[in-house]
């Protein structure tokens, strides 16, 4: 037992403490957080715009929005990342993490759009008719009646999308950016021990997502206040 424990400890020290390797983990973690939040914010903005455009009665808005969603959902995120990094931003000297975040934001926007669209459609049309019959405009009805109810259906799916997004940013290593996953992989290549760095990064991802899930659940409970019978 003692033998086993000291071996684990040695492994830990070698992978995270020697040569201050924990700083790689911290740097990588910072990049992951930064890219995730930037991409999520961008995804929500793009997704909201796409959701309304895709539900518009004007074809000039609807068709491009549907096309965007089709293309993004029909191609791998890695391929999109590579295209955006090497083709679209090939000659632009922005910080690579920013370009990565833009790529994930563009990807996430398509999924967020579908989440928001489904949430809006889930609100009974009678709610809209009641608002209109009182003399509200379509915009007032959407803002005051439909969206507050749609949020209850949108929020859990949006949280799920955010969690998927955090994990998906791990592919940013493909374009040579050192995020959390890449940091673990880098340490492995230096120490030739796979167990500790890979499991370590997995545990960090897990803890972050677990904490976020807890926060989301608490907020969702608040949203459901009007459902109590």
């Amino acid at each position: 037992m003692g033998d086993w424990f000291s071996r684990i400890l040695d492994d830990f020290i070698q992978n995270f403490i020697t040569e201050s390797r924990y700083t790689l983990i911290i740097q990588g973690f910072t990049v992951t957080v930064y890219v995730s939040f930037l991409a999520a914010a961008l995804g929500v903005i793009i997704g909201t715009a796409l959701a309304f455009a895709s539900m518009s009665k004007y074809k000039a808005l609807k068709l491009p929005a549907r096309g965007y969603i089709d293309i993004i959902r029909g191609t791998p995120a890695v391929t999109q990342l590579l295209i955006i990094y090497f083709v679209v931003f090939g000659s632009v000297r922005w910080h690579p993490a920013v370009i990565g975040a833009i790529s994930f934001g563009i990807n996430s926007g398509a999924y967020v759009a579908e989440i928001i669209r489904a949430g809006i459609l889930s609100v009974d049309y009678g709610q809209t008719e009641a608002g209109l019959s009182l003399g509200m405009t379509r915009a007032q009805t959407m803002i005051k009646i439909v969206l507050p109810q749609a949020v209850k259906n949108i929020f859990p799916a949006l949280c799920n999308e955010f969690i998927v997004l955090i994990k998906e940013t791990a592919i940013i290593g493909y374009v040579g950016i050192m995020d959390l996953a890449k940091a673990g992989e880098f340490i492995r290549s230096r120490t030739f021990s796979a167990f500790m760095p890979l499991l370590g990064t997995a545990i960090i991802y897990f803890i972050v997502i677990k904490l976020l899930t807890k926060m989301f659940a608490a907020f969702e409970k608040k949203l459901r206040k009007s459902d109590i019978r």
Partner: peptide, 15 residues
């Protein structure tokens, strides 16, 4: 529409 109130079969109260 502000001149006309409407009452629906399914109530349609703002939930």
């Amino acid at each position: 529409r502000q001149k006309m109130g409407m009452v629906f079969q399914q109530f349609n109260l703002f939930a």
